[in-house]
Computed example of a mutant assay.
Amino acid sequence: MNTEMIQFDEKGLVPAIVQDATSKEVLTLAYMNKESLTKTIETKETWFYSRSREELWHKGETSGNTQHVLDLRYDCDQDAVLVLVNPEGPACHKGTYSCFSDSLLEAKPNADRFAILNTLEQTIAKREAERPDGAYTTYLFNEGVDKILKKVGEEASEVIIAAKNRDHQELTWESADLIFHLMVLLREQECVLDDVLQVLEERHASK
């Protein structure tokens, strides 16, 4: 990225929207000046400019919650930057996965029959970042990939058994368990669910 094309405001700043590259959740909105943008490009970790302290700050320097930059994009007016990252821990100083945790609107019913997959993907990403005590997903991430793989294998076997037994209720439950653990594995491997869906679309289109 040529920083010369970015339109900084009268204070020499540009808003930077930080988004989880895997879950697509917006994590935070911060500001960059030319120096912090350059450092972000060079180090592949997010650097911002603090308007309150009037100084550069490296995200995660004290907390350890760094953000590994995968891509930097700018909008059509060249006056805003989108930063796609793999976060190491919460983005918010309050310890939450995203700074955008509260809503001004009441939750509305979603007509999308697959909306739960988006919700589940975001929740898993939040659990990985925040690691709340007592959460089963926290346990899986803390144990690591071997434990997650073991659970995927166990749940796949349970699906097979339920299907062989023609037990529809059990098959439904075990299928849900398998999908959940598979999505945890995708998150651990930094594999985007959209990429899996894209493969399915490509295979369908080729027939």
Score class of each variant (00 low, 15 high):
124 I>W: 03
96 T>G: 12
45 E>T: 14
174 E>M: 00
191 C>S: 09
119 T>A: 01
154 E>L: 10
17 I>Y: 02
179 I>Y: 00
35 E>I: 01
198 Q>W: 14
135 A>S: 13
175 S>D: 06
23 S>F: 11
149 L>K: 13
45 E>K: 03
205 A>G: 06
158 E>A: 10
151 K>I: 12
190 E>D: 14
41 I>E: 14
103 S>I: 08
162 A>T: 02
204 H>W: 08
124 I>V: 08
69 V>M: 05
132 P>N: 03
42 E>N: 09
154 E>K: 13
4 E>H: 05
95 G>T: 02
69 V>L: 05
144 G>C: 13
96 T>I: 08
50 S>V: 05
13 L>N: 05
150 K>N: 12
39 K>H: 13
206 S>I: 14
74 Y>I: 07
118 N>T: 10
116 I>R: 04
53 R>P: 07
113 R>A: 11
105 L>N: 12
81 V>T: 03
170 E>M: 03
181 H>Y: 15
110 N>D: 15
164 K>Q: 14
85 V>G: 07
144 G>Q: 09
119 T>W: 00
9 D>I: 05
191 C>V: 14
148 I>Q: 10
129 A>Y: 07
58 H>W: 10
104 L>V: 12
33 N>D: 15
150 K>G: 06
186 L>H: 01
83 V>H: 05
20 D>V: 00
50 S>H: 10
151 K>W: 08
87 P>V: 09
17 I>M: 11
90 P>M: 04
115 A>K: 11
21 A>I: 00
117 L>N: 09
119 T>M: 11
101 S>D: 04
44 K>F: 08
43 T>V: 00
8 F>I: 01
147 K>S: 13
116 I>V: 15
11 K>S: 07
194 D>T: 09
66 T>S: 12
129 A>V: 03
61 E>Q: 14
156 A>S: 12
44 K>W: 04
34 K>Y: 03
132 P>T: 09
119 T>G: 06
55 E>F: 01
